[in-house]
Design a protein around this nucleic acid. Sequence first.
DNA 1: CCGGGTTGGTTAATCGTTTAGCCAACCGTG
DNA 2: CACGGTTGGCTAAACGATTAACCAACCCGG
Lengths: 352, 352
Amino acid sequence: MARRIGIKDVAAAAGVSTATVSHVLNRVEGKRIGQKTRQRVWQAAEELGYAPNGLARGLRLQRSQTIGFVSDEIATTPHAGRMILGAQEAAAAEGLLLLLVNTSGDAELERTSIEMLLQRQVDGVLYAAMYHRTVRLPESLGATPTVLLDARSEDPAVPFVVPDEVQGGYTAVRELIHHGHRRIGVTVQTVDLPARQGRLEGYRKALAEAGIPYDPSLVAAETAVPFNTTPGDVETGYRAARRLLTAEQRPTALFCFNDRMAAGAYRAAAELGLSIPGQLSVIGFDNQELVCESVYPALSTVQLPHYEMGARAVAQLLALTKTPGRPPGPDTNALLLCPLVARASVASPPRL
Amino acid sequence: MARRIGIKDVAAAAGVSTATVSHVLNRVEGKRIGQKTRQRVWQAAEELGYAPNGLARGLRLQRSQTIGFVSDEIATTPHAGRMILGAQEAAAAEGLLLLLVNTSGDAELERTSIEMLLQRQVDGVLYAAMYHRTVRLPESLGATPTVLLDARSEDPAVPFVVPDEVQGGYTAVRELIHHGHRRIGVTVQTVDLPARQGRLEGYRKALAEAGIPYDPSLVAAETAVPFNTTPGDVETGYRAARRLLTAEQRPTALFCFNDRMAAGAYRAAAELGLSIPGQLSVIGFDNQELVCESVYPALSTVQLPHYEMGARAVAQLLALTKTPGRPPGPDTNALLLCPLVARASVASPPRL
DNA sequence: CCGGGTTGGTTAATCGTTTAGCCAACCGTG
DNA sequence: CACGGTTGGCTAAACGATTAACCAACCCGG
């Protein structure tokens, strides 16, 4: 197989030096090259199908045009896919490529993975969690520009991009209130996450705004069993919903911590003979489309803006590499809006 | 910020030449270096925290220790995540990293993406589809070792890794037969894919093996409307199932082309007052966990071995790079088994 | 004491780019 | 004609590794 053609092949073909080729092809400012030579170089490059060697260029320029995407979990949800996609497309638009690694939450694996990234001279790293939580950044990333994705750090100096959980919870509950609901239950898991806190805060904010008193008995927190399963699964949602719906004064609507828990609420409602949305309105969170459209009627929910988060994180990272002294101001962080996705599970409450 | 430390820093610290450092650190065979010097080099490298510069090494060795993962769609299903994860972990085990790009089915985007990959001197490319289909490989990949993932090519010379759809369909239907079903309906979409063909073939094979005559009226093929939506969605599955279940002699079990269509079957069953699995058994395909566990009772299905496919594809790619002349024998391809995932939607047929 | 083998390293070229600095030719002026 | 300023392009030194080729020193037998 013929050796890949390089800049010196182009130089030879055009009858100039490699320096000239480089100058022409990179349109170096302040370098004056004659029209005719320019033409010859362009043409030669074109004919030979020249493409620069990124490794060589990276070596010379001390930048690989590559960023590392470190995530704790890639496979379990489509969330990861959307974040990656957002990041990848935003990166590609800037001529950057994503180098992907997964840590599975394993510290040792994380260490070696990051080492591999650094060896390849990544220009920066996106450190992503698959649900909004607080992480501790590995020390080896100290010298590399880093942005947290769907995660926060204890260290305020490192920028993060997260969803605005409060606004999201607020949006969900306001949707219910707009339809006339006033007794709104919440089903939630018990693990304390920024997501949990934020969404509950949004719930209270929407209630307060509508002048509805906060009733703690309407908040059903349930722990996943067995203990080591993912919190916030269907089963947990089922139990929480069942508890609320069998209480003496049952709510007319349910705000579920996530779509999977909402699927559990559907099951509880079916068991109790409550039709959705006629007798019970349900709203979820996450917009996991597979879930929302597998249940019937299709689940209204609030979307986590994963694609946008990925894209935004790349933007933040780029900003970081341009201004080396990372100013830990609030402008380096981003809270992204969670829009409502209305489907068919919310209606007006039944008239009494 | 201190310049990254390189091989010459180590050399200086150990009081030797860079050549010696390289020899020691790479354990070059046939090169004899004294024990003491070895020690000094190791120690110096350790203390300085030396890590080789992958770009420089790649440039010299003409190989980047990096492989490109080109996929048409990353975000819509967790399938992509599993394939990527499998590929990533298998790659990492060999010291390789994945460079990820998404084409969104856009030919122009695909062209530029692949160009970016080639510029970075990827050692090979995994070309992945998100559902089993036939693709045409871009010409620019001609000179690069390539393996198809969940896809086949018209060109027999390019190796592929795909699920064994026939065995999968066979497995699903045999599960129903084992429970005593003899009237087994199939719901399927109308687009002609390897997946569709294979699963139907597996269906007939299982039937034949059990001595059950093939009845075409039990195969409900339905087209998605509006036309441009994804084939095989919930709605399509609903319509197909409804048709079968309202026929005069309705089947006691349904084999659905995928889990989403199975979710549609659940809805049809609910409407017709048929309980699952008491009056109707349902089995899906794909093992989309979010779907399988969002419906009630949890859906039994057949798993597409995406993780394994990703891992296997990396192995094939590695084999390819080691033996440059790609022998298009069948051993360069792989058909991976689709195991049964039994949940709660299959039981014995009701006694008449 | 000489010649040849072994041991333990070093020198320098190379991978494919970029870019600072140099230089030759040319042009118009005083 | 000497001279400064432009124009257009070349030379050569990086970037950080690997590796073929070379070499100095030592040892040992004859």
